[in-house]
Amino acid sequence: MTGKSNDTDEIRNSKAAREARSIIKFMIEHTAYGGFGALVFGALVLFFDIGGIYSLATASRDAPIFIMLLFFGLFITFGGISLGIGIMNLGGFSDNDSYDDERRKHRDDRNGS
């Protein structure tokens, strides 16, 4: 029985498990940033009654459903955008550096010959 417990502990603390947890944390964190942006944007849209959305929603008996759908759509949109920006920024400048070095090398080869 102690052998199985040690095996599961090793699996939980393995490098792959730690990386998976950090990826999940990264995704949740960036989606939460987008969700916060969605809440702020949605609150501002309703507060300033842009496009008459708040007036239309409150004139209906289903106002909570309309407002919930508005915030759900904003959360999906802003969360996805925030997550996409976070993923695209993972590479940093390392991808571009090798490309720029390669271009410089070929440009120098053409000019030198």
Rank of each mutant, 00 (worst) to 15 (best):
R21Q: 15
F41L: 15
K15W: 07
A20Q: 13
M68R: 09
V45R: 01
L83W: 05
F93S: 05
A57T: 06
G3N: 13
L44R: 01
S22R: 15
N6V: 08
S82H: 11
Y54C: 06
G91F: 01
A38L: 09
G52H: 09
E102G: 00
R21G: 14
G42Y: 03
E19R: 14
L69P: 00
R103H: 05
D9G: 01
Y99N: 09
F66K: 13
I85K: 15
I76L: 14
G92A: 02
A20N: 14
S60N: 02
N111F: 10
E10K: 08
A32T: 15
K105F: 05
A57Y: 12
S5T: 10
G79D: 07
V45H: 03
R110P: 00
V45M: 12
L90C: 05
S82C: 12
I28N: 11
G51P: 04
I24E: 05
T58P: 00
A17W: 11
S22T: 07
D101R: 10
D108W: 00
F66L: 13
F26E: 03
F78V: 04
T31H: 07
G42C: 10
F36N: 00
G92V: 02
F36L: 09
T77K: 15
R104G: 00
D101P: 00
A43P: 00
Y54Q: 11
V40I: 15
K105Q: 06
I23R: 07
G86K: 04
A43Q: 06
R104K: 07
G3H: 13
D101Q: 09
T77H: 11
A63I: 01
V45Y: 03
G37S: 03
A38T: 12
A59M: 01
S60Y: 01
D101A: 07
F78I: 07
G42W: 03
D49K: 06
H30Y: 14
L46F: 03
R12L: 15
N6G: 03
N89I: 02
R110C: 02
T31A: 14
A63Q: 01
I85W: 04
G52V: 08
I11N: 05
A17K: 10
A57E: 04
S55C: 04
N13P: 01
F36S: 07
I87V: 13
